[in-house]
Write a protein that binds this DNA or RNA. Structure first.
Length: 460
RNA sequence: GGCUCGGUGACAGAGUGGUGAUGUAGCGGACUGCAACUCCGUGCACAGCGGUUCGAUUCCGCUCCGAGCCUCCA
């Protein structure tokens, strides 16, 4: 089955084929490590993690790089504000980023290049651009000359004239053209800096991705991803740097995820509705956050709200409950992915909502299946879960677990269930229902069945 | 102003030129000591107005509403 991806450059879905057979190179813009990742940062991570999983079903060699931007104005500002070193800031937030993303059940990328470990290639790239007449030195800065590139603006579908039409930002006087952007800028003595042919300085924002992609993945990569907002200027400028320095193609498929809103509003510092992944994890398990993020197609805006998360929790609970019913079934069946509706959906530009709907369809079939049909259905659900990064935990632990701490213990629940069992045997249904209600008040739902009484924690 | 992109049922969210998305919640029923789970049934959804068409939520145009980007924000 072929994989189709929406390519921002072409503005349409295209059949994906890697440049080198059976080998895929993918680069996704990672975090600037100066604060905690918020849920908006998590969306591309979860989306491209899902793509990473999918690609691995098609190709033997999949290299997925996600950079760490550890030199930046915001980092310097954070260090100054906290009276601490740059390294202590970047180390802390790099570690927390990895922890938070791991909680979302995302696989570690194959490579995690740090900007500060790749300064040399950035200096080389800058030198090459000057050499070829695409960049110039001005007042200690090195700037890329956008007019030197004929098709600058191709990715964002705009021309230099269009950009100037709406220009509302003061243009630094050291720029030849208002659209010129910084490759290298001088560093103050107390700020981090590296020696270069243009004096002690540090790289401009766009430079690191171009240089690190070249350094670690090669001249042309297959997929480059990130949030929509990166299309311009970031990715546009990466293209300019890389194409003008090396010629050839830079990226073959550009992918961009849409934003998410919080309770119907744009997430922004000024509104004060920025939600960090770390804070959300105090209330919802990582898999719930992941499921919520995958519940909309990655190119559609997603409204993130308590309702969405509660729905995600309920839905996951019901799927785990289905798996719980068949937890004793041993699996030794291979699932031919090519025949699977959920696989078809994922291969259609990562249509996760449809893939999830197909999982529901499988769950429904499983409920009605004969004993002989159950193993293969269970295997199919788990195969879908593996690709989506969900349903990989023990069902009973999921249903009986949670993130809250001050809840009734499993031992206390079992004790009450035993009491209720005695009451039922004595036909004291009044007492039995009392216990049921008592547990329900503490968020515990009981289910009587032939095998005995099962319990699970309710989301709210 | 320029460039992109959207408006689907109570809510979330796919998709299609003519039959069903799916989920959550709701309602009715079966099952249950009562529940829960599960099953069965159920709700006249496609912003508005024109056009193309035998037929449009799906194609085209206009209107209204909304979003993102326009120099370092996923």
């Amino acid at each position: 089955m072929s994989l189709t991806l929406y390519n921002t450059m072409a503005s349409k879905k295209e059949v994906f084929a890697p440049l080198v057979p059976d080998t895929v190179t993918m680069y996704v813009c990672g975090p600037t490590v100066y604060n905690l990742a918020h849920i908006g940062n998590a969306r591309p991570v979860v989306v491209f993690d899902t793509l990473f999983r999918l690609l691995q079903t098609h190709y033997t060699h999949v290299t997925y790089a996600r950079n760490i931007t550890d030199v930046d104005d915001k980092i310097i500002a954070a260090a100054k504000e906290g009276h601490r070193s740059i390294e202590s800031v970047t180390d802390e937030f790099t570690a927390k980023y990895r922890e938070d993303m791991a909680q979302l059940n995302t696989l570690p990328p194959t490579l995690e290049p740090h900007a500060t470990h790749n300064i040399e290639p950035m200096i080389e790239l800058t030198g090459k651009l000057i050499e070829k007449g695409h960049a110039y030195e001005s007042e200690g800065h090195v700037l890329f000359a956008v007019e030197s590139m004929a098709d600058y603006g191709k990715l964002s579908h705009r021309s230099l004239e269009d950009m100037l039409a709406g220009a509302r930002v003061e243009v630094a006087d050291y720029k030849r053209h208002p659209g010129d952007f910084v490759l290298w800028k001088p560093a103050a003595d107390e700020d981090p800096g590296w020696d270069s042919p243009w004096g002690r300085g540090r790289p401009g924002w766009h430079l690191e991705c171009s240089a690190m992609i070249r350094e670690h993945l090669g001249e042309t990569i297959d997929i480059h991803g990130g949030g929509r907002d990166l299309i311009f200027p970031h990715h546009e400028n990466e293209i300019a740097q890389s194409r003008c320095a090396h010629g050839g193609e830079y990226v073959r498929y550009w992918m961009h995820n849409a934003y998410l809103d919080i309770d119907g509003e744009k997430m922004s510092k000024s509104i004060g509705n920025v939600r960090s992944v770390r804070d959300l994890l105090k209330v919802y398990r990582g898999e719930v956050l992941r499921f919520a993020l995958l519940s909309a197609h990655y190119r559609s805006p997603l409204n993130f709200s308590a309702e969405l998360l509660d729905q995600a929790e309920t839905t996951l609970g019901s799927l785990y409950s289905t798996l719980s019913d068949v937890r004793d079934i041993e699996l030794d069946v291979e699932v031919p992915l090519a025949d699977e509706p959920f696989y078809r959906a994922l291969n259609d530009d990562l249509n996760t909502p449809v893939a999830i709907a197909e999982v529901h369809a499988l769950a429904k079939q499983l409920h009605k299946a004969s004993a002989g049909e159950k193993p293969v259905l269970k295997a199919r659900i788990l195969a879908a879960g593996k690709l989506l990064g969900i349903l990989e935990q023990d069902p009973q632990e999921w249903l009986q677990g949670g993130v809250s701490e001050d809840v009734i213990s499993a031992e206390a629940i079992d004790a009450l269930i035993n009491q209720r069992q005695d009451a039922k045997l004595a036909k004291d249904y009044g007492r039995a229902d009392e216990i049921r209600q008592e547990l329900l008040d503490q968020g515990v739902v009981l289910e009587d069945s032939r095998e005995g009484t099962k319990w699970r924690r309710k989301s709210d």
